[in-house]
Design a protein around this nucleic acid. Structure first.
Lengths: 251, 251
DNA sequence: TAGTGGTCTAGACCACAAA
DNA sequence: TTGTGGTCTAGACCACTAG
């Protein structure tokens, strides 16, 4: 391999991606087998295997042992959004994050919270109510419940220094989450704390966070419709990791 | 390898993931090198390499040639949403998709459209205005502009049979997209076509679709706040592909 | 210089599917 | 039976980093 040349498996991948892209290879078409690639390109089988395996991981092709490799049905475009930790997002924009902790106390889970967290009513939970600000302007109203059994030291944290989301990640790194995004009208309390106009809608993110196989936290995150938007960029996971995400504030 | 045993590289991956998960390995900790894994587990170096390389792809570790492998900084939880083709989503729920095409004509790009598509004002574009229904109830108001040069036969399509999104994917399989989600109040026209109440907000998805390296379509997708939500589940790309996504309609 | 990751090879054995 | 993908090995060469 001469100087500065791309790896062979990468060249193979790009060759096949190009053929898919320009229509030479259509969905469900057969892609050359590993042995055929060995014969036609002179690479070893392990190298051909790596190229095809990575194309599989990236969704370009599908492989069936004993049968062959085929161009994947290009699933009708699906577009991705990523919701990140609010403080990170603000920092990433070079702005200043600050927050006001309105509520931080232990309570017994009411019916709705217990149902969301899938515990018995009356289970001990911590209730947090925090308003996050970007350069002083309120941008997120966080209403969160945390399973006390999961984060016993939760109330001792300084949530103006670390967001609950970051704190929970620190406790248990490998989390899962379910979330729902909706457009809603805020109730008066939310509207007031976000300094919103009458008749201005909220972008509401409801998130259930899982750790160690069970729900550990439920949060309702309200964002002012006028000042907040959720943005994402999606590319079909090409040769490079070419996904970028961002959350933006208009103005 | 006896019957039904997992591949060695997979066992290695799960071993290391477990150590990260339970705190034995903390972010920035050094992970055993390939040669150390060869010595301690008896696998070949290629097998150790595959395990560590896949852990890198999945974001668990970071590798620096000449230095070593280290547990990745677990980025404060980022949660993913995927927006799919509306017709697919409805079909996936077992419901019936139908649509009404209100506008389907060629126009000259006005200033805002030209700017979004990054073409000159006056460029020929196709304007589509379609209301999508789920079991007869309006669920999406699609206001789309398509670059005529990209999809010359666009106006000949029957968009009650194939959505514009699916049609564009069919023309050019490898697309990219940028999109922004907001909560907004609909203007009277949108409110009427979605049969919404006064004072009900919309979830607005604005999407710019790229193909062949340039923007080819710009769409504003309005959804009624009361009947529509965007849902997603995120798991840290574990051993299996364990991402699932869905879009749901409340009620 | 010794250790690291990045790549590549030329074999090998296996389970599986199709003819 | 032949070909497929799935895995694994035991070497190898390279560029890079650190002591």
């Amino acid at each position: 391999m001469s100087v500065q040349e791309k790896p062979r498996y990468q060249q193979l991948k790009e060759l096949i991606i190009a053929q898919i892209s320009n229509g030479e290879l259509r969905p469900r078409d057969r892609v050359p087998s590993e042995n055929e690639l060995v014969g036609s390109t002179g690479v070893s089988r392990m190298t051909a295997n790596r190229a095809l395996r990575e194309l599989t991981d990236e969704g370009y092709v599908e492989r069936v042992a004993g049968v062959g490799t085929f161009v994947a049905d290009l699933k009708s475009a699906s577009h991705v959004l990523e919701v990140r930790n609010i403080a990170d997002e603000i920092a990433h924009r070079g702005h200043t994050h600050s927050s006001v902790v309105l509520v931080r106390k232990a309570v017994r889970a009411a019916a709705t919270v217990a149902k969301a967290l899938r515990v018995e009513e009356g289970e001990k939970v911590f209730h947090l109510l925090i308003v996050h600000k970007e350069n002083g302007a309120p941008i997120q109203h966080e209403n969160r419940y945390v399973l006390a059994a999961f984060a016993p030291h939760c109330l001792e944290q300084d949530f103006t220094a670390i967001t609950p989301s970051a704190y929970l990640s620190a406790i248990s790194p490998l989390q899962e989450a379910e979330q729902v995004v909706q457009a809603v009208m805020p109730d008066p309390g939310v509207r007031k704390s976000l300094q919103m106009q009458e008749n201005e809608p909220c972008l509401l993110v409801q998130r259930l966070t899982w750790a160690e196989g069970r729900p550990v936290s439920f949060a309702r995150l309200y964002h002012p419709g006028e000042r907040f938007e959720l943005a994402g960029r999606y590319a079909p996971t090409g040769m490079r990791q070419n996904k970028r995400y961002s959350m933006k504030v208009s103005q």
